[in-house]
Computed example of a mutant assay.
Amino acid sequence: MLDLMTSGTGDTDVRPESLGQWRDYGESTLPVPLAAALAAFAEHGYHGTSVREIAARANLSVPGLYHHYPSKQSLLQGLLERTMTDLLHRSEVAIAEAGERPVDQFDAVVESLLRFHMYRREQAFVGSTEIRSLDDGYKATYISHRDRQQHMVDEIVFAGVEAGDFATPYPKDAARAVATMCVGVSTWFKLDGELGADELIARNLELARALVGYRADAHAV
Rank of each mutant, 00 (worst) to 15 (best):
114 L>D: 02
152 M>W: 01
100 E>V: 12
122 E>M: 12
40 A>G: 03
92 E>M: 08
171 P>A: 13
200 L>A: 15
217 D>V: 11
95 I>N: 00
22 W>D: 01
136 D>L: 15
173 D>A: 14
202 A>P: 05
177 A>T: 13
219 H>I: 06
175 A>L: 09
1 M>R: 08
184 G>D: 10
207 L>N: 11
161 V>L: 09
219 H>C: 07
141 T>Q: 14
167 A>W: 09
211 L>S: 06
103 V>S: 08
139 K>F: 11
143 I>D: 12
202 A>H: 02
178 V>F: 10
158 F>I: 06
51 V>E: 09
139 K>S: 09
152 M>T: 01
166 F>P: 07
77 Q>D: 13
155 E>I: 10
88 L>I: 12
181 M>L: 15
87 L>R: 00
122 E>N: 14
218 A>H: 04
189 F>E: 00
10 G>W: 06
4 L>T: 06
150 Q>C: 07
219 H>W: 09
210 A>V: 08
24 D>P: 07
35 A>Q: 06
212 V>M: 01
161 V>E: 04
166 F>L: 10
41 F>S: 02
139 K>P: 04
37 A>E: 00
59 N>D: 14
20 G>A: 04
54 I>W: 04
174 A>C: 10
157 V>R: 01
205 L>E: 03
153 V>T: 03
30 L>V: 13
113 L>Q: 01
124 A>T: 12
118 M>I: 05
13 D>W: 14
167 A>E: 13
187 T>D: 11
139 K>R: 15
35 A>E: 01
186 S>M: 12
199 E>A: 15
45 G>M: 04
172 K>N: 07
47 H>W: 05
73 Q>G: 10
187 T>Y: 15
157 V>C: 02
34 L>P: 00
17 E>L: 15
102 P>D: 04
16 P>M: 05
173 D>L: 13
79 L>W: 02
74 S>Y: 01
139 K>V: 07
185 V>Q: 01
38 L>F: 06
110 V>K: 00
64 G>C: 05
49 T>K: 06
204 N>I: 08
124 A>G: 14
33 P>N: 07
181 M>K: 05
74 S>L: 02
111 E>S: 06
197 A>W: 02
221 V>A: 12
153 V>L: 05
